[in-house]
Amino acid sequence: MPAEEMCECQKAAKIARGRRHDQKRPSSRQRGYTRQWEALRAEFLRHNPACKFCGNQAEHVDHIEAHKGNPRLFWNWLNLQALCAHCHNSIKQRIERGNHV
Rank of each mutant, 00 (worst) to 15 (best):
H60M: 13
K24Q: 14
E5H: 14
D62W: 01
H60Q: 15
A12E: 13
Y33N: 06
N48F: 07
H60C: 14
E8Y: 03
H21S: 13
W37I: 01
Q57E: 15
Q10V: 02
R25S: 08
A3I: 10
P26A: 04
W37P: 01
G32M: 00
Y33M: 12
L45K: 04
G18I: 05
A39E: 13
A39L: 13
M6C: 03
H60W: 15
A39Y: 06
V61H: 01
Q36H: 13
E65D: 07
T34N: 12
E8M: 08
E8L: 10
G55K: 03
R19W: 11
H60D: 15
Q10F: 01
A13C: 11
A39P: 03
C54L: 09
D22Y: 08
E65I: 12
R25V: 01
F53S: 02
V61L: 09
I64L: 00
E43I: 10
Q10D: 09
I15V: 12
Q30E: 15
G18Y: 10
F53C: 09
Q30S: 14
E59S: 15
C51S: 03
C7Q: 06
K24A: 13
R25M: 11
A3H: 05
V61M: 04
L45I: 10
E59W: 12
D62G: 10
Q36S: 12
Y33A: 06
Q23V: 02
R41P: 05
E4Y: 04
A50L: 08
C7A: 11
A16P: 01
A3L: 11
E4T: 01
P26D: 06
C54W: 06
A58Y: 00
R25Q: 10
Q57C: 13
L40W: 01
P26F: 00
A58V: 05
